[in-house]
Structures are given as structure tokens and as C-alpha cells.
Amino acid sequence: MRTEIGLCFAFALSLTGVVVAESDADKGLAIAVEADRRDTGFHDFRAELTMLLRNRHGEESSRIMRSQSIEVENDGDKTLIIFDEPRDVQGTALLTYSHKTGDDDQWLYLPALKRVKRIASSNKSGPFMGSEFAYEDLASQEIEKYTYRYVKDDEIDGQSTFVIERDPVDENSGYKRQWVWIDKAEYRPLKIEFYDRKDSLLKTLVFSDYQQYLDQYWRAERMYMENHQTGKSTLLTWKTYEFRVGLADSDFTKNSLKRAK
């Protein structure tokens, strides 16, 4: 009897062992999938963005943009960003078709020349408008763009969180890995640490002032990115979020770029 119990116990233990051995990757992925599931189905939205760029001497410069996105079934979102300031780039617009796998497609519209230019979007790590946000930080965050690993549980400002590591699949990414703090209650990212290719801490992004839309979709109004290696920072503020405003695929074409004002 005793042996049987012992055997059963050992068997159960080995089972758990197998589960535990796989679970860091599985659990990491499961958290990412759940976060993605909760943010799926919004169809479309638009918002206004302000970026406040600050260098290590405290000198500031600002960017004002409008953004609109539409979900694409079985692929990444389509996004259109129109620049309002600085004035010399007013009317410039960036169209992105993000993909779950492979490079995104990107076009830039230059209003002075009425020209739509194709951009090589292998440039993921480049700074967006001179800010501390890289193109890949602002791109649609698809599950397939990373591999995952659950790291630990943690707490941020009294909210209990998961910490997962995600490693970019794309070799053109500027990062070796990212640590993402996701709150257990709503599966929203609260903080991301970005590690460069040499695995040193490069940047920290902190999300705050979350608002809920359509009783489901959470959006952070403030995203504060700090670069630890240069001392520069960018505060990205999102305003006037509107969901399901009736955007269609035809609002995300090269012709629609030329209409952007």
C-alpha cells in the first residue's frame, strides 16, 4: 500500500516535473495569447498623439500626430499616422500594413512632392521622428513576432503582475529581449524593459493612466520611454480615442495617404 502511494506520488511528481519544465515557455505564451485575445475585436479606432522629446540637458521638442488603425483578419493591423507638427513635416503620412510573420509593408507620403515612397521596413530599430520610440515599439504587437518565457510574478504600485520575457523573432530587431510586466487583473502591459543586442538595459517604457473603451479595450494615455544609455526620454500622450468609427480598408490605401490632411 505504502509503495503504491509512493509510486503514485513519484508519478505525480514526475508529471508535474514535465509540466513545470514546459511551463515557462507555455505560460509565457499563454499570458501573451490571453492579453492579445482581450484586445481583439475592436475593429477600428483613431486617436491623437503628442510626443514630448527631452534630451539629457532638459531641452524639449514636440511632435503632434493623428493615428488610425483597423484590424485585419488573420494578419497584423493596418495603421495610418498623419503628422501635424513639426510644421515642416505637416501632412506627411505613414501607412503600415503589419504582418504576423515577415517584414511589415510601409509607405511614406511626402505632401510637398505628392509622392508616395516605399520604405524598407527592415529598419525596425530606427528612431521614430527622432524620439526614443523605435518603429518596432510602435508597430502592431503580434503574437508571432516573439517567443515567450514566463519569468516571475511581481508587483507594480500595488498591482500584481506577471513578468514575461519576449525575444524578437526578427533578426533586424534592435533588441535581444524584452521583459514585460502584465497586470493579472486585466492583462495590460504596465512596464517594458528593452535590452539591446549586447543584452544591456537600453530603455524602460512605463504605461499609465489606463482608460477602458467599449467596456473592454484598455488604452494607456501616457507612455513614458526612458533611454538609460543616452539620458534622453520621450513622453507619448494619447488623446481622444474613438473606437468603431466606421473605418474601412479603403481608408488605408495609397490613395487615402494622398487625401490625408
Binding site: L113, K114, R115, V116, A248, S250, T253, N255, S256, R259
Partner: peptide, 19 residues
């Protein structure tokens, strides 16, 4: 300019770039 669901009309003096 008038546009609706993938249809567009532009009438007047305009600039178009190909290339």
C-alpha cells in the same frame, strides 16, 4: 475631392506624381 468606399473624384487644379 469626394471619396466614398474606394471611389474617388478629384476636380480642379491638382498635382499628381508617378514614379
Amino acid at each position: 475631392t469626394f471619396h466614398d468606399r474606394g471611389f474617388e473624384v478629384r476636380l480642379g487644379v491638382d498635382k499628381v506624381f508617378w514614379g
